[in-house]
Amino acid sequence: MDRQIIEKILEAAVKAPSGDNVQPWRFEVSQDWARIDLFNLPERDDSYYNYQQAAAYIAHGAVIENIAIASRHLGCMVKLKLFPEPQNPSYVASFEFESASAVDDPLYPAIFTRETNRFHFQDVQLPAEDAQQIIDSIKQVEGVKGYFVHDVKTVKTLAKVIMVNDRVVFEHKEIHSFLFDKIRWNQKQIEETQDGMPVGTLGLNPIEKLFFPLMRFWWFVDLANYVGLSRIIGAKCWYNCQNAALIGQVTVQKTDSLGFIQAGRALQRVWLEAARQGLAFQPIVGLPLLIHRAQENALEAFSETHRNMLEQAKQSLFGIFGIDQSETLAVGFRIGKCKSVAEKTLRKAV
């Protein structure tokens, strides 16, 4: 195989999203450049959300989708095998490449322009044709279902449900600590680590930027919650989401590694289609993954209040979207119009 083509495929692969940009992957390439092996690195993501590596496998699903899209576009036929060694769950996938005719894929350029936008979206609705293209974007991904809402009243109702996760982040010490461990506060940190989230990507307004550094200290957050800090942060989430042109959820039938990989592939396809249309996109993964943990009776160190909040959120999401109780929430997202994010996340070199 042509080394330059495989290197371009790898460049596309690492542009995949991951929780807090932890990049939980490692690649091995054969000497003849005809094979790539993809491995999960569990130590990269020890967040509370990553129960049984669900968050990591979603990220790997996005990597796999990027490789599939880039391969077609650059003139490769790829044979994908998921979990080639069943006894080794960290060996996620193998890809074997052969030369083929290039097939133009309109999603390929979006791999490199896709971004997470946590800012307040404009109050703009999508044309019906554009919304339908987003809805159709995941139909070829097996084992998942997509649910989409775009009418104004229902979007505002969903915004009140979605804000639960942001409240929990600032009321649960372990989740809070992981988040702030992944924030990069200056250019030196960004360049040294090449992972995590630059503070400029968090959607903070000028006043919030003044106080946000104090929130890295749990003692401050714990004290400030007595005067409603976590509720204010939840309200900010509601404010940002209630103008979304479209809010969606991806569900899976099977809550195993394959199911969450397929969810990641679906998420990436929706994201790339939104980016192709020049739309802003924010994944909403924390709440679905906490609800998944609750379904597995694995909410260790969660208070009864937080358990009840998650159960109410689950019932609301299932009811509003019309989701069958046999399905499991995997990932969510909001899509709309917004200015582009000036500061970008970096990726480690392959």
Rank of each mutant, 00 (worst) to 15 (best):
H176Q: 12
P89L: 00
F83E: 15
A263S: 12
E96M: 07
D20N: 13
K153D: 14
Q295K: 12
Q52D: 11
Y57F: 10
F220T: 01
T255S: 10
K254N: 04
T113G: 08
E96L: 10
S340L: 06
L299E: 11
Q53C: 06
E28F: 03
S30A: 12
P106Q: 13
V250H: 03
K314Y: 07
Q52L: 04
R265T: 05
L126H: 15
T328M: 02
Q277H: 12
L289E: 06
G286V: 01
S99R: 14
T328I: 01
V227S: 01
G61F: 06
L38V: 05
Q189E: 15
Q23V: 00
L290K: 04
D123P: 00
V227W: 01
R216H: 03
M215Q: 04
I6R: 09
V22L: 09
V22Y: 12
F39T: 04
I134Y: 13
A13H: 13
L158Y: 07
L82F: 10
D105C: 05
A244K: 04
V168K: 15
Y91I: 00
G19D: 10
E327T: 03
F217H: 02
T201P: 09
H150T: 04
V144L: 12
Q253S: 08
Q249G: 02
E208F: 03
P206S: 08
I135N: 05
L214G: 02
K339M: 07
I323D: 05
I9N: 14
F260R: 11
A294L: 05
D45A: 09
F321G: 15
F321M: 09
S137I: 05
Q140F: 06
N40P: 00
G228N: 12
L317W: 13
F220G: 01
Q253A: 07
R334P: 04
V270H: 09
D46F: 03
